[in-house]
Design a protein around this nucleic acid. Structure first.
Lengths: 163, 163
DNA sequence: TCAGAATCCATGAAATCCCATTGTATCCCA
DNA sequence: TGGGATACAATGGGATTTCATGGATTCTGA
């Protein structure tokens, strides 16, 4: 796997009335290095009240994995259903959104609700994917290490926002 | 295999008195990227009381897969019959329908019955294919994960429909 | 001739594009 | 190394197009 081209870094950007957010340039550049798409795939994060985001190429690899699994178990009873449900979650529960020339996406209303995003979005690179948080929830979450919260606080302070 | 151009996302659209439904634009665009057809193939889903849908190009690939499987098992007693039936289902039980300039198909009456589609159609991308459900049955099905049902509920709410 | 089907047109709402502004980081050359 | 010029990132607002859908019109085959 490409050790290069990993998502890293953090930033806080504004979500405007139309639900638009600028995807930080340093994340966009990774997306474009990983493939030729100018879109990101959004999903509700499995563990956190936040969004999981990645590039379409990564979604494709995930699909291949599911396919192999499906072929392997297609004889066994029950597993077929499990494989089916996994695909449904991986694709039906996600949305692919393009970003425009200025690097903005519009957060689909459903994702906005699932990720509980309000007027600020905290972006955090996590290697193969990056996360989008409501900064407030990030700071309140007991599972997040204090060092990470410090970074979030810095990003907020940097833009003159107090929560 | 097609790493990109996968069906994903979800939507609820209306089925009018003539049996017409708009295929969501984000699914149509995938169909057109995968081939140059403006047509979808419909089949009763193998596991669910719903329809399985895909592009004509995928129907071809699925056919090859079944052929290989048939050859592989044709010595074994019994399996041959299974493979035969699978092929019959894959082709005899499908219908190919074109969508018009505005992106609408008319649901063939048989498919409408097989999929138990009434006046609302829930579309769900599942990678290589997408499904068409009666939203009511989707919400009632015990096998469907609660997270997916939440999404279906959101799609209904979004359009102001209460079931 | 008539019913059902396939086309075509119309519309309101929503999504997308385009241009304009500002602040900040980067570059370049004296 | 300063200091201005330049480029890019993030954001706001308005103009334009697309989408989903309803209704009318034409076509076609019994």
């Amino acid at each position: 796997m490409a050790l290069d081209h990993l998502f890293q870094g953090s930033a806080v950007n504004a979500v405007d009335a139309k639900g638009r957010v600028s995807v930080p340039a340093f994340l966009r550049s990774v997306i474009e290095k990983r493939g030729d798409a100018r879109t990101i795939v959004l999903a509700k994060h499995k563990l956190f009240p936040a969004l999981d985001a990645y590039d379409p190429a990564f979604a494709g690899r995930r699909h291949e994995k599911l396919e192999r699994r499906a072929e392997k178990v297609e004889t066994e009873e029950g597993s077929e259903l499990d494989a089916m449900m996994a695909s449904m979650m991986a694709f039906g529960a996600t949305e692919e959104v393009p970003y425009d020339k200025t690097g903005r996406i519009v957060l689909p209303p459903m994702m906005r609700r699932k990720g509980r995003i309000e007027d600020l979005a905290l972006f955090i690179g996590v290697g193969e994917t990056f996360q989008v948080w409501n900064p407030k929830l990030f700071l309140e979450d007991d599972r997040i290490h204090e060092d990470m919260k410090d970074i979030a606080r810095f990003r907020l302070e940097e833009r003159g926002v107090a929560l």
